[in-house]
């Protein structure tokens, strides 16, 4: 069982690093249930973000995870599920 946990801070750090951040969006605001599109990230940005999460956390995301995880909350849950970390966010 992995002890690693994927947090909202991890996600924000990786988003900023891999795809940048829209000046009109405050990633430090209440974003857990915002759609990624609403946050300024299109599918390619999510693909790049997903790749970085896979590398850093040594997991393999299913191709449809990013499509079926349209908000930070659902993506964080999906990654932690793969990590075997049972955390509610």
């Amino acid at each position: 069982m992995s002890t690693k946990e994927f947090t909202l801070d991890d996600l924000k750090r990786i988003l900023r690093d891999s795809a940048g951040a829209d000046e009109a969006v405050d990633l430090d605001g209440d974003i857990l249930d915002a759609g990624f599109e609403e946050l300024g990230y299109e599918s390619l940005a999510l693909l790049e973000t997903g790749g970085r999460i896979e590398r850093e956390f040594d997991i393999t995301l299913d191709d449809d995870v990013l499509v079926s995880a349209p908000t930070p909350r659902t993506l964080i849950a999906a990654v932690n599920n793969l990590l075997g970390t049972d955390v509610a966010v």
């Binding site: 690093d17 795809a19 940048g20 790049e48």
Partner: peptide, 8 residues
């Protein structure tokens, strides 16, 4: 340029 454009 906007920050979103820089990584790409």
């Amino acid at each position: 340029l906007p920050n979103r454009l820089l990584p790409q």
